[in-house]
Protein backbone atom coordinates (compact mmCIF):
# COMPACT_ATOMS: atom_id res chain seq x y z
CA UNK A 1 0.00 0.00 0.00
CA UNK A 2 1.52 3.32 -1.03
CA UNK A 3 0.82 6.47 0.93
CA UNK A 4 1.45 9.58 -1.14
CA UNK A 5 0.95 13.29 -0.75
CA UNK A 6 2.62 16.68 -0.58
CA UNK A 7 5.12 17.44 2.18
CA UNK A 8 3.37 18.22 5.45
CA UNK A 9 0.12 16.46 4.64
CA UNK A 10 0.47 14.03 7.56
CA UNK A 11 1.78 10.86 5.89
CA UNK A 12 4.44 10.22 8.55
CA UNK A 13 2.01 11.22 11.29
CA UNK A 14 -0.52 8.72 9.99
CA UNK A 15 2.18 6.04 10.04
CA UNK A 16 3.00 6.93 13.66
CA UNK A 17 -0.67 6.74 14.58
CA UNK A 18 -0.96 3.31 12.96
CA UNK A 19 2.19 2.20 14.84
CA UNK A 20 0.67 3.36 18.13
CA UNK A 21 3.21 6.11 18.74
CA UNK A 22 0.79 9.00 18.39
CA UNK A 23 -2.80 9.17 19.44
CA UNK A 24 -5.47 9.97 16.89
CA UNK A 25 -8.00 12.78 17.39
CA UNK A 26 -10.72 10.18 17.12
CA UNK A 27 -11.29 6.53 16.42
CA UNK A 28 -9.07 3.60 17.12
CA UNK A 29 -6.47 1.65 15.15
CA UNK A 30 -7.01 -2.10 15.38
CA UNK A 31 -4.40 -4.62 14.35
CA UNK A 32 -5.40 -8.27 14.63
CA UNK A 33 -8.54 -7.14 16.47
CA UNK A 34 -6.52 -5.49 19.24
CA UNK A 35 -5.99 -1.74 19.53
CA UNK A 36 -2.36 -0.83 18.78
CA UNK A 37 -2.50 1.58 21.72
CA UNK A 38 -3.53 -1.25 24.01
CA UNK A 39 -1.30 -2.33 26.87
CA UNK A 40 -1.47 -5.82 25.37
CA UNK A 41 1.69 -6.20 23.34
CA UNK A 42 0.84 -9.51 21.64
CA UNK A 43 -0.28 -7.98 18.35
CA UNK A 44 2.70 -5.62 18.14
CA UNK A 45 5.12 -8.51 17.64
CA UNK A 46 3.76 -8.82 14.10
CA UNK A 47 3.99 -5.09 13.43
CA UNK A 48 7.23 -3.33 12.52
CA UNK A 49 7.52 0.44 12.35
CA UNK A 50 10.51 1.97 10.58
CA UNK A 51 10.13 5.71 10.74
CA UNK A 52 11.86 8.55 8.97
CA UNK A 53 14.57 8.67 11.65
CA UNK A 54 16.87 5.64 12.08
CA UNK A 55 15.08 4.58 15.29
CA UNK A 56 18.31 3.33 16.82
CA UNK A 57 21.04 4.36 19.23
CA UNK A 58 23.75 6.51 17.61
CA UNK A 59 26.50 5.37 20.00
CA UNK A 60 25.95 1.67 19.34
CA UNK A 61 27.23 -0.23 16.32
CA UNK A 62 25.03 -1.64 13.56
CA UNK A 63 25.52 -5.13 15.01
CA UNK A 64 24.49 -4.01 18.52
CA UNK A 65 21.51 -2.04 17.28
CA UNK A 66 20.33 -4.92 15.10
CA UNK A 67 20.79 -7.39 17.95
CA UNK A 68 18.83 -5.16 20.33
CA UNK A 69 16.01 -4.71 17.79
CA UNK A 70 15.76 -8.46 17.32
CA UNK A 71 16.02 -9.22 21.05
CA UNK A 72 13.09 -6.97 21.96
CA UNK A 73 10.93 -8.76 19.40
CA UNK A 74 12.11 -12.25 20.34
CA UNK A 75 13.45 -12.16 23.93
CA UNK A 76 13.60 -15.95 24.24
CA UNK A 77 15.11 -16.87 20.88
CA UNK A 78 18.84 -17.18 20.22
CA UNK A 79 21.06 -17.78 17.22
CA UNK A 80 19.82 -15.09 14.87
CA UNK A 81 21.68 -14.95 11.54
CA UNK A 82 22.71 -11.34 12.13
CA UNK A 83 26.01 -11.70 10.26
CA UNK A 84 24.38 -12.91 7.07
CA UNK A 85 21.71 -10.20 7.25
CA UNK A 86 24.36 -7.52 7.69
CA UNK A 87 26.23 -9.00 4.74
CA UNK A 88 23.07 -9.04 2.61
CA UNK A 89 22.54 -5.32 3.17
CA UNK A 90 26.23 -4.56 2.60
CA UNK A 91 27.09 -3.41 6.11
CA UNK A 92 29.18 -6.32 7.42
CA UNK A 93 32.54 -4.56 6.95
CA UNK A 94 31.33 -1.57 9.02
CA UNK A 95 29.10 -3.53 11.39
CA UNK A 96 31.16 -2.59 14.44
CA UNK A 97 31.30 1.16 13.77
CA UNK A 98 28.95 3.36 15.78
CA UNK A 99 26.03 4.28 13.55
CA UNK A 100 26.46 7.99 14.30
CA UNK A 101 29.19 7.95 11.62
CA UNK A 102 26.89 6.27 9.08
CA UNK A 103 25.59 8.08 6.02
CA UNK A 104 21.85 8.38 5.36
CA UNK A 105 22.04 5.51 2.88
CA UNK A 106 23.81 3.24 5.36
CA UNK A 107 21.19 3.97 8.00
CA UNK A 108 18.50 3.06 5.46
CA UNK A 109 20.31 -0.22 4.82
CA UNK A 110 20.39 -0.89 8.55
CA UNK A 111 16.63 -0.32 8.71
CA UNK A 112 16.31 -2.80 5.86
CA UNK A 113 18.37 -5.26 7.94
CA UNK A 114 15.87 -4.86 10.80
CA UNK A 115 12.99 -5.49 8.39
CA UNK A 116 14.75 -8.65 7.18
CA UNK A 117 15.50 -9.91 10.69
CA UNK A 118 11.98 -9.56 12.07
CA UNK A 119 9.12 -11.77 10.94
CA UNK A 120 6.51 -9.01 10.65
CA UNK A 121 3.08 -9.22 9.13
CA UNK A 122 2.59 -5.47 8.78
CA UNK A 123 5.54 -3.26 7.90
CA UNK A 124 5.19 0.50 8.23
CA UNK A 125 8.11 2.06 6.40
CA UNK A 126 8.53 5.81 6.00
CA UNK A 127 10.37 6.71 2.78
CA UNK A 128 12.24 3.43 2.31
CA UNK A 129 14.27 4.70 -0.66
CA UNK A 130 15.39 7.98 0.88
CA UNK A 131 19.16 8.52 0.63
CA UNK A 132 19.87 5.16 -0.99
CA UNK A 133 22.30 4.67 -3.89
CA UNK A 134 21.37 2.53 -6.90
CA UNK A 135 22.57 -0.68 -5.24
CA UNK A 136 20.66 0.17 -2.06
CA UNK A 137 17.50 0.83 -4.05
CA UNK A 138 17.88 -2.52 -5.79
CA UNK A 139 18.34 -4.28 -2.44
CA UNK A 140 15.24 -2.63 -1.01
CA UNK A 141 13.21 -3.33 -4.13
CA UNK A 142 14.29 -6.95 -4.14
CA UNK A 143 13.31 -7.27 -0.48
CA UNK A 144 9.87 -5.78 -1.15
CA UNK A 145 9.42 -8.19 -4.07
CA UNK A 146 10.22 -11.12 -1.73
CA UNK A 147 7.61 -9.83 0.73
CA UNK A 148 4.82 -10.06 -1.82
CA UNK A 149 2.77 -12.77 -0.16
CA UNK A 150 -0.73 -12.86 1.35
CA UNK A 151 0.61 -13.08 4.93
CA UNK A 152 2.48 -9.81 4.72
CA UNK A 153 1.32 -6.24 4.16
CA UNK A 154 3.37 -3.12 3.66
CA UNK A 155 2.27 0.45 4.24
CA UNK A 156 4.90 2.65 2.64
CA UNK A 157 5.24 6.41 2.56
CA UNK A 158 6.67 7.13 -0.88
CA UNK A 159 7.18 10.17 -3.07
CA UNK A 160 7.75 8.45 -6.41
CA UNK A 161 4.32 8.22 -8.10
CA UNK A 162 5.65 5.99 -10.88
CA UNK A 163 7.11 3.53 -8.39
CA UNK A 164 3.85 3.42 -6.44
CA UNK A 165 1.85 2.83 -9.64
CA UNK A 166 4.21 0.04 -10.65
CA UNK A 167 4.47 -1.81 -7.32
CA UNK A 168 1.64 -0.95 -4.94
CA UNK A 169 -1.68 -2.78 -4.97
CA UNK A 170 -3.47 0.11 -3.31
CA UNK A 171 -2.71 3.82 -3.45
CA UNK A 172 -3.77 6.44 -0.95
CA UNK A 173 -3.20 10.15 -1.46
CA UNK A 174 -3.47 12.58 1.42
CA UNK A 175 -3.97 16.31 1.01
CA UNK A 176 -5.63 19.27 2.72
CA UNK A 177 -6.13 17.06 5.80
CA UNK A 178 -8.26 14.59 3.83
CA UNK A 179 -7.93 11.29 2.05
CA UNK A 180 -8.17 12.56 -1.53
CA UNK A 181 -7.70 9.23 -3.23
CA UNK A 182 -7.94 5.66 -1.99
CA UNK A 183 -8.26 2.98 -4.64
CA UNK A 184 -6.85 -0.35 -5.70
CA UNK A 185 -4.16 0.05 -8.33
CA UNK A 186 -5.24 -1.00 -11.80
CA UNK A 187 -6.33 0.27 -15.20
CA UNK A 188 -6.97 3.98 -15.18
CA UNK A 189 -5.13 4.50 -11.88
CA UNK A 190 -2.30 6.45 -13.52
CA UNK A 191 -4.67 9.06 -14.96
CA UNK A 192 -6.60 9.42 -11.70
CA UNK A 193 -3.49 9.64 -9.51
CA UNK A 194 -1.91 12.18 -11.89
CA UNK A 195 -5.10 14.26 -11.87
CA UNK A 196 -5.32 14.28 -8.05
CA UNK A 197 -1.66 15.16 -7.79
CA UNK A 198 -1.88 18.02 -10.28
CA UNK A 199 -4.85 19.36 -8.27
CA UNK A 200 -3.02 19.31 -4.93
CA UNK A 201 0.15 20.74 -6.40
CA UNK A 202 -1.60 23.66 -8.05
Amino acid sequence: MGLLGKNGTGKSTLLRVVAGLSSADGGEILFKDIAVRSTQTGNRKDLLYLGHAPGMYPGLSARENLEFAVRIYYPEKTGFPLESILEEVGLLSQADDPIKVYSQGMLQRLKLAVAKAIDWELLLFDEPFSGLDIQGRKLTQSFFDQCMNPRRSLLLVVHEIDWALEHCTRIIILGRGLVLYDHQNGPGARENVSRVFSEIMS
Binding site: T39, P54, Y57, P58, A69
Partner: peptide
Protein backbone atom coordinates in the same frame (compact mmCIF):
# COMPACT_ATOMS: atom_id res chain seq x y z
CA UNK B 1 18.29 12.71 25.06
CA UNK B 2 19.94 9.68 23.45
CA UNK B 3 16.51 8.09 23.08
CA UNK B 4 15.39 11.15 21.12
CA UNK B 5 18.51 11.70 19.03
CA UNK B 6 17.76 9.06 16.34
CA UNK B 7 14.18 8.45 17.56
CA UNK B 8 15.20 5.14 19.12
CA UNK B 9 12.34 5.67 21.55
CA UNK B 10 9.85 5.61 18.66
CA UNK B 11 11.08 2.21 17.57
CA UNK B 12 11.16 0.96 21.17
CA UNK B 13 7.58 1.89 22.02
CA UNK B 14 6.22 0.57 18.73
CA UNK B 15 7.84 -2.80 19.50
CA UNK B 16 6.11 -5.49 21.61
CA UNK B 17 7.58 -4.12 24.82
CA UNK B 18 5.62 -3.38 27.97
CA UNK B 19 6.27 0.35 28.36
Amino acid sequence: AYEKEFDAFGFLISAPVDR
